[in-house]
Amino acid sequence: MEVRIVLNIMWVAIGIGVVTIIPTSLFFFQTLNVEMIQLISLLCLGYVPYTIFYKSIPAQWQAPLLIVNCIAVISIFYYLAPYMGHAVFYFVPLFGMFFRKVKLFIFSVVVSGIAYIGVLQLVGGPETDWVYFTMNLSFFACYNTILYFLMSVVVSTTTSKVEAEKGIESLILAIEMVDDYTKGHSKRVQEYSLLFGETLKRAGYPVDLDVLSTSSILHDVGKLQIPAAILQKREG
């Protein structure tokens, strides 16, 4: 997934977080205390520098730096409000999973785990108890294992779809080699079919656009079994 899309998802999550914190604080404390104002400010401003400047960062560093930015914000959030618990660190691997890259996901898990342990040493509290701490790390490990398998399924599905698309492209090239006269015809039929399909779907008809896309571009696949002499024969 592109950094831009993950960043948009992150901002939506921040908006939900802010909308949740404000009424919760007003309900329990009848006011927004200093701590809540700090948390809201952190969520609203913590990603602004990255959002403004990420396009100027080399492409290979954009995703890792976004994960580091996320870990930094979450760490400060936990330091200011340790009563929120270690679960706040669960968001980092979740965003890491969105990139669908194993190395980035492992990076997000390891760094968020290190950040949790480091901040925990600063804030202290009941989570420093060995039993409690071990239990939290066990939950964290189980959670990330589940995320890893989910990501593996998504990546496998995406890879299969890409391979299928490459196979279809190869078939279309083979068809056009047999009948050069209709070069580009299959692609045009697919485009027109999808236009009709999208219009019908908006009108409420149950149209499967993926099936329509594949079937329309392969409608001439039978030409592969017809002799070129027949296909290329011209009248007169």
Rank of each mutant, 00 (worst) to 15 (best):
I172H: 02
G85L: 09
V211W: 04
S213F: 01
L200Q: 08
V189E: 06
A63F: 03
V221M: 05
Y78W: 06
F99W: 04
N8L: 15
S56F: 15
V109R: 00
S56I: 14
L147S: 07
K161E: 15
N136I: 10
L209D: 07
A141L: 14
G85V: 05
M97P: 02
M151G: 06
K223S: 03
M177H: 14
V68G: 00
F149N: 07
V48D: 11
A81K: 10
K55T: 15
A81E: 08
L66A: 05
P93Q: 09
W61A: 12
L137K: 04
V68E: 03
I175G: 00
P206K: 04
M84I: 11
Y50C: 11
Y181K: 13
V102C: 01
L194P: 01
M84W: 11
F105R: 00
G236M: 11
V18P: 00
Y47F: 15
I168K: 02
G113E: 03
T182M: 12
L195E: 14
F77S: 03
S213W: 00
R234K: 15
M36F: 08
M135D: 09
L147W: 06
G46C: 03
V111E: 07
S152N: 11
L224C: 06
K187S: 07
C70W: 02
Y47W: 15
E169I: 09
M10K: 04
L65E: 06
N69G: 04
C70G: 08
L120R: 03
E163D: 14
P82F: 08
S216C: 01
P206I: 02
A63G: 05
T51V: 10
L122M: 15
S216A: 11
R188A: 08
R188N: 13
I106T: 01
F91T: 14
A59Y: 13
Q62C: 07
A164R: 14
L194F: 04
L26H: 05
V19E: 01
Y78S: 03
N33A: 08
I168W: 07
M1P: 02
F149Q: 12
F133C: 09
S215A: 14
Y90S: 09
A72C: 13
F28L: 12
L194D: 06
Y116C: 01
C70H: 14
V12F: 15
P58H: 11
M151R: 05
L43A: 13
L45D: 09
P126I: 10
V207D: 04
L120K: 01
C70M: 13
D220P: 00
A228L: 06
F53N: 11
Y205D: 03
H86T: 08
E191Q: 13
G113R: 03
L120P: 01
R202Q: 12
S25H: 07
E198N: 10
D129L: 06
L7W: 11
